[in-house]
Nucleic acid binder design. Sequence first.
DNA 1: ATAAAACTTGAACGATCACTCAAGATAAAC
DNA 2: GTTTATCTTGAGTGATCGTTCAAGTTTTAT
Lengths: 193, 193
Amino acid sequence: MSRPAKFDRDLVLERAMQAFWDQGYCSTSVATLTQTTQLNPGSIYAAFESKQGLFLATLDHYGKRSVEEITQTVNSAETPLEGIRELFRQLATNVKKPKSERSCFLVNTVLDASRHNAMVRERVNHYFDLIESVFRNALASAQNNGELAIDKNPRTLATFIMTTIWGLRVLLVTGAGQDKVESVLDQLFILLD
Amino acid sequence: MSRPAKFDRDLVLERAMQAFWDQGYCSTSVATLTQTTQLNPGSIYAAFESKQGLFLATLDHYGKRSVEEITQTVNSAETPLEGIRELFRQLATNVKKPKSERSCFLVNTVLDASRHNAMVRERVNHYFDLIESVFRNALASAQNNGELAIDKNPRTLATFIMTTIWGLRVLLVTGAGQDKVESVLDQLFILLD
DNA sequence: ATAAAACTTGAACGATCACTCAAGATAAAC
DNA sequence: GTTTATCTTGAGTGATCGTTCAAGTTTTAT
């Protein structure tokens, strides 16, 4: 016996996420959020408790989708190792895309808001862990296939892959060209052979 | 025929830098800056024009010192390649240090303020370029010494080293332990052999 | 001494911040 | 149709934001 919320929660999260992603937590005012989400302050606070509550919800929105997309890309290739390579090739094509300077929402957040907020840090680390396990599993499969040498360590390589992704995100923000990005991919792929 | 400023500019820059580094540009208010620098608002604005002006000055303060320290570490080892390895070993010891979660001021800045401010971006990129050239020169020297295989490309490797540093900074912020950090170093060192 | 120039002080400015809440609107339950 | 519970609206809250500036202070040059 109550009135359901009129707005589409996923649409609101998507729009709020774009705002936070573009401008960062601190520079995104509630006034901006009311514009982009087309929700009044009251509705935002009724649904998400606070600006931080909305931010955490957008983090989940982004995190879940990232994990899905990465899993999809890595696991839908012909072989596990090829899946990982394909993921990096896709990442590299971001150079040309218009909003590549936004980097990754999780990476931006971990270097910004997470350092003084345990809740944010834990959530970001959670999604990083999930993503790393996708790589670790793929590498283990590759070893079983004989695609990856038996003396390589999937755990070590997965950590290194994560580090390379993080580094690549920064590289893209610096405005690096195609050549630099491909340099990085080449070096990483050497280690995966 | 004028009155000289009473405050120590370097000390003020150091204190302001610590504040910006700890909390980020946006979260560091001028009120905070007046406390940490022990300067009144008027003095700050007389000396640095604006909050952003002070920030840019702290960026230079940090950037110049970083370049000096990296150059020193890389060039004072017995061989160029050993210098690069030594730098990474030092970076790795940051895991234990209390403020390791602050990452690198330049990296934090490039993912935060730089994306919507060309002046900040150019300045950060400038220092990144200087640092990368330290590695490129060291690698070229290593090749002349016969320490680095002749088929390796110093330019490509220097870019990869920068990417690894950036990735390592993120890794440290996630709270990774010694083991993960050493994993990354091991993989990087393979590529330098 | 005096004048000139620059620095220091700190109260005050308008703008904007995150957030609240009373009033009105709306859907489900009966 | 009435009740009930919740959502929506948007003006308004006090706090804090970056910045300014007039008044007072201090140093140098003459």
